[in-house]
Every structure is written in C-alpha cells, then in structure tokens.
C-alpha cells in the first residue's frame, strides 16, 4: 500500500508539490500563530508575577507605621506578596540599572531615593482597590500601578486566542480542500485502474488505502516543513524579540514547546491529510456505484 502511494506521488510530482506547498503555507501560519499566542501567554504570565503596585513612601516613617500598612493590606486577602524596598536597596537597584553611566551615579545618594512597597495582587481585578488603600495611607507619597498594561495585554491574549481558533479552523479547512482536490484529481485520473481492481476482487479498503496514505504523506510532510520553517524563523527573530521584550525572560524557547509544536502539527497534518483524502476517495467510489 505504502509502495503504491509512493508510486502515485512519483507519477505526478507537480500535483504532489503543489499540495505540499499549499498545506505547508497554511500549517506555517498556524505554527506562527501558536508561537505568538504562547509567547503572549508567557509575557502575560511573567507580568502577572511582577509587582503590580508600587507605593513610594514618605521620608522618615516609623517601622510601626510600615507594619500597620502591611497588616492592613494583608487583611484585605487580595494581596499575594508585599516587598519592602529600603532607601539603600533602592540605591543599589539604581546603581545596577545605571552602571554604564557614571555621571548619573555620582549625583545620587540613598537620601534622595524614596523607600517603597512592591505589592502583587492575587488577581488583576483587585489592583484598583489595593492602590486606593495605599493612597489613603498617610505614609504613602505616590502610588504607581500597571493595571493598564496588564489588562491590555490580557485582552490582547484573549483576542489572539479567539481569532486563532477561527484561523486554525479556516486554514485547516483550506488544507482539507487542497487534499480533496489533489487526491480527487488523482482518483479521477486512475478511474480505469480502480475499475479493474474492483473487477478482480479488490475491496474498498485495498482501493482506497494508497490514496489515503498519499494524503497522510502530504499532511505529515507539510507539517514538518511548516514546523522547520517556523522554527528557523523563530531562531532568526530571537535577537530582535529579546531586545523588544527587554527583560522579559521567555527566551530561549524550551525544547518541550518546540517538539510539542512539532507533535501538534504532525497530528493536524495526519488528520487533515487522512480525512481529506478519505472524503475525496469516498466521493468517487460513491459515484462509481
């Protein structure tokens, strides 16, 4: 069966090439979408673990006042983590961030930098309430929180996911139709052979199998090509993405993700190739009766 399917492909290489290129293109777009979607998820996940509210404190506050504020925040049960950053730690961070600019380092001392509280919320929806609690406290000078950035990214990720589901279905349908057209043409071109095989006692399975295997070969080959090109594209774009996402550690992409993507594409290729060719062959055999 496999040998016959390979013979079919060899006998009409241009049709086979056309089908594989078309399917590779659609699988490539699917693969890129999966990468973008997963990347957005990773960025969102990273941002969610960062302190989302920063409260800069007034100078010369008493430790009891700080503890009182911490207790007040914890009592809300909406806070995941609270971290106090002292003036000295703030200076150390400042030095670390500006180590390449000695002029900026010379002019700054711990005295002019404020101490701060970095607060992570259990949910993004709790951020306004936590920020309000902090603002009302007399030891707090200023409150900054990243609700806008995180919620925009969150809604983007949800949109990408929704649009992607539609995109995958649409592109899979295109691949399915491509396989159906190519295999349909091949079945039609081998009408006589199918008729002869039927007359000498070949069952439907024997007649259909080489065409279905051919479709599966197209699907698997296209999936592999799509994976390879998208992986190479990712490697090529990595330096740009690393600088674009400055500081967000999602690179290097794990091998689990890369090989998981290969596995997913192969399963999709197998299903699209197999189902497409099965439909094409079934349709012809139905007309034969």
């Amino acid at each position: 069966m496999f040998k016959t399917a390979i013979q079919h492909i060899k006998r009409s290489p241009l049709q086979a090439l056309g089908a594989v290129l078309m399917m590779s293109l659609t699988f490539f777009i699917i693969s890129i979408w999966v990468m973008v979607s997963s990347g957005s998820e990773a960025v969102l996940g990273y941002l969610e673990t960062r302190p989302q509210v920063t409260a800069f404190l007034k100078d010369e506050i008493k430790p009891q006042q700080l503890e009182l504020l911490k207790s007040k925040l914890e009592a809300t049960e909406k806070v995941k983590k609270i971290k106090y950053v002292s003036k000295e730690e703030a200076l150390s961070l400042y030095r670390q961030e500006n180590k390449d600019n000695p002029l900026l380092l010379e002019m700054v001392t711990a005295k002019i930098l404020p101490a701060s509280l970095e607060v992570s919320a259990k949910s993004l929806s709790f951020l306004p309430e936590i920020a309000e609690t902090l603002k009302e406290d007399p030891i707090v000078e200023e409150v900054i929180f990243q609700e806008g950035v995180v919620s925009v990214l969150s809604s983007w990720t949800a949109s990408i996911r929704k649009a992607g589901t539609f995109l995958i279905l649409f592109l899979s349908l295109i691949s399915l139709l491509t396989v159906m057209i190519v295999i349909g043409m091949k079945v039609s071109g081998r009408k006589e052979e199918i008729e002869i095989l039927g007359l000498i006692g070949a069952g439907k399975g024997y007649i259909r199998s080489p065409f279905i295997i051919e479709g599966i070969i197209y699907g698997l080959l296209s999936a592999f090509i799509a994976w390879l090109t998208s992986y190479i594209s990712l490697l090529y774009a990595t330096p740009f993405l690393v600088s674009f996402l400055a500081g967000i550690p999602i690179f290097p992409v794990s091998f689990e993700f890369i090989f998981g993507l290969l596995g997913g594409l192969m399963v999709l290729g197998f299903l699209v190739g197999g189902i497409g060719s099965l439909f094409a062959v079934k349709r012809f055999l139905k007309f034969r009766k």
Partner: peptide, 24 residues
C-alpha cells in the same frame, strides 16, 4: 451484499476483451 462483492469476485477469473492490464 455490496460488502461481499469483492470476496465473490475473487472466486471468478476474468479475461477481458480489452485485456484491462494496468499500463504502468
């Protein structure tokens, strides 16, 4: 039944007037 036709045809050998050999 249609499903049984292949098995039925395997008991019969046929020489066709137009040979019906697969040319490839």
């Amino acid at each position: 039944r249609s499903k049984k036709i292949p098995q039925f045809r395997r008991k019969i050998g046929v020489v066709f007037q137009d040979f019906k050999l697969l040319i490839d």
